[in-house]
Design a protein around this nucleic acid. Structure first.
Lengths: 225, 225
DNA sequence: AAAACAATTTTGATTAATCAAAGTTGACGC
DNA sequence: GCGTCAACTTTGATTAATCAAAATTGTTTT
């Protein structure tokens, strides 16, 4: 059985890898993501390779094997179903469920997970808009674009919040930018690196490029309503 | 912060200690309960003492300090509320919730725990009949007797199942001996070490002394109905 | 009291995860 | 084509939890 630490490394590697690519994830990127020293990552990657969960190329990086990807998707399924459960059933604070799920995902058995899935009616996405892998390990990718790249006039529906830290999520929540909400891009300014948004409730707000890049949307129409 | 292992040791020490007594728990008993070697327990007890969670007297045993008892009661509260939640909300198999709760209790934050408590309406007992400590660390002890000691003719209500292994719990469940059920002691035989029980649904069954000692009951009447 | 025994502690080792600091390496700039 | 530097790996050490096997101790038994 994989330890909690191994589960976390494999999950992070999966999330750092470009989807549909077979590129290697660099040790440095992983070290930053896991908040550990570079040497620790090197040691761990050798371990993952020996366990058959990943291929490790010294000075290049790491790539999950089929087995590693299966484990990563299982962890992602646990994490996201648990998040969904915490929000819809236990009414935990939307901005804090990520931290709770980070702990719980390692303690939820497959047996329990499927009960949770059934209870929730097999949702397709978690509260942040991320897709929930199926029990069979399939993940349905939607055709989303980053809000940062949207042109003025476009009407969009917020689909997914990529950054999961509590302060950012709190901002999203407080400003009505949660998945499912509608908005219109009023103006963009490349030089100033800002994007101006008009929300369904009539309010307007301005986002910096970095924040707007963390929000994925569905484009509803190419022109203003 | 206490590790998962420390949490488990402290909980076990609490459960092995005679309630209301200040007797020491022997290292050997703990080793058996934790399924570790005696030497491991010695090492751990020194650690618990250094952490201020227990007093350790070499060759005598261990006793929780006030801090250790607080931690033990917190773990018990988590364990039992989680069990209750798994049964009432997620409909997990009554006989298997102990195993699941054993894992989950270490991953449930205090914040989440109180949400679960509120969701359940602050139950006083878990599905096996064990009392759930309050958030303040108080435990309400009921006046129960072991079924094994009951005399023929007594009407009883099943209150608490002490043994928590799945096969035993499955037997209890399959035979309608779950907490809340009523029964009457039909006959006892000290020499044969058996006790004959008549249930509310009309069936009768015979328990050995060891099994009957693991079932705690409330006595409803001293004489037959 | 000495021997025997059972429980407990010590000792020496192992595994997993980590760090800091020293050593390598490969690519990039000049 | 050679030095420099950032990224990566190695090395040596630490902490937590564990074991097996040897040493100790306290209590029975004879």
């Amino acid at each position: 059985m994989a330890t909690t630490t191994v589960e976390n490394y494999v999950k992070r590697i999966y999330l750092l890898a470009e989807p549909e690519t077979d590129a290697f994830v660099s040790p440095g990127a992983l070290a930053a993501e896991m908040s550990v020293s570079p040497g620790t990552v090197t040691t761990m990657l050798k371990g993952l390779a020996k366990a058959g969960l990943a291929e490790y190329e010294p000075r290049t990086g790491v790539r999950l094997t089929a087995g590693g990807e299966t484990l990563a998707l299982r962890m992602l399924r646990k994490h996201r179903l648990v998040e969904m459960f915490l929000v819809s059933v236990l009414k935990l604070d939307w901005a804090e469920i990520n931290e709770e799920a980070e702990l719980l995902e390692h303690a939820v058995s497959d047996r329990l997970l499927e009960k949770i899935d059934a209870f929730l009616g097999s949702p397709a996405h978690d509260p942040h808009g991320d897709p929930i892998p199926t029990a069979g390990g399939k993940i349905v990718r939607r055709n989303l674009v980053r809000l940062a790249g949207c042109e003025p006039g476009k009407r969009v529906r917020i689909a997914c919040i990529r950054r999961q830290d509590a302060p950012f999520l709190r901002y999203i929540l407080d400003n009505g930018l949660t998945p499912g909400e509608y908005a219109r891009v009023v103006a963009t300014d490349t030089e100033a690196d800002v994007l101006r948004l008009s929300l369904a409730n009539g309010t307007e707000l301005t986002l910096g490029g970095k924040a707007a890049a963390e929000i994925e949307v569905e484009v509803i129409s190419g022109k203003r309503a």
